[in-house]
């Protein structure tokens, strides 16, 4: 098992959001967290990166407890986090954004990884010298994905990658996520577009009011709870 979240209670200040959540991610799989607004999906990812406060429970990555690992060292362990909202460095160029993605690498390796990532994201190649702020929403999302992958992480945390994008771009993003999976990278995906996310998922967790209320493979898509609340069935 790559990532294990055990009995996690977490939140912001004195306001708990997660109340004893258990999630597991195995190597090479896409695990999707779905649920209504306020269920605590993004807080799971934020807890891993210590943006949300952890009150109780454990997060274990490759048999190592993350409690005492600093936020800036998580990427060195092999966890990459692409937060919600296409968080680029708007005043830096596309190339500089990519280079920051490989901050932990030495110069020689960074150059190799940057060339390789540009093969995987050829559209960015033509835009390297542009200020990232001028890119379209879809391009910015591709940029943050590329930036998150430049270190060859073992686990990619993706928060709402399709949010605010057109259906065409959303399709591209989901195809790209599948490509990433095929590279052998495990993905923990938080997504509002439950239907689309579940199509590419190996396993699905349904969160509600800070607890996981349902989990399993794609077969849970037919569960009445998901049908009723999230898929409009």
């Amino acid at each position: 098992m790559l990532l294990q979240i055990k009995n996690l209670s977490a939140g912001y200040g004195k306001f708990p959001v997660l109340k004893g959540v258990n999630i597991e991610v195995n190597r090479g799989e896409i695990v999707v967290l779905i649920g209504p607004n306020g269920a605590g999906k993004s807080t799971v990812l934020k807890s891993i990166f210590k943006i949300a406060a952890i009150y109780e429970g454990e997060i274990i990555f490759k048999n190592q407890k993350l409690k005492k690992i600093s936020r800036h060292d998580l990427i060195r362990l092999g966890i990459s986090y692409v937060p919600q909202g296409r968080v680029i460095f708007p005043n830096l160029t596309v190339e500089e954004n990519l280079l920051m993605g490989g901050f932990i690498l030495d110069n020689e390796l960074l150059k190799q990884k940057k060339d390789r990532i540009l093969e995987e994201f050829p559209h960015l190649k033509k835009k390297l010298n542009l200020i990232a702020d001028v890119l379209s929403g879809g391009e910015q999302q591709m940029l943050v994905l590329a930036r998150g992958l430049i270190t060859d992480p073992e686990l990619l945390l993706l928060d709402e990658p399709s949010l605010g994008l057109s259906p065409k771009i959303q399709k591209e993003i989901f195809n790209k996520i599948l490509e990433i999976k095929n590279l052998g990278i495990s993905i923990l995906l938080v997504e509002q577009n439950a239907k689309k996310a579940c199509e590419i998922a190996d396993r699905i967790y349904l969160l509600k009011s800070g607890k996981e209320v349902l989990f399993g493979g794609k077969e849970i898509l037919s569960h009445p709870l998901i049908q009723k609340v999230y898929l409009g069935g």
Partner: peptide, 24 residues
Amino acid sequence: SRYGLVIRSLISNPLMAEILGVNK
């Protein structure tokens, strides 16, 4: 310089810079 890039990224978004491995 690469060090300057780190400073500019920290100025732009300190949390994201940390997520990418910068020891703030």
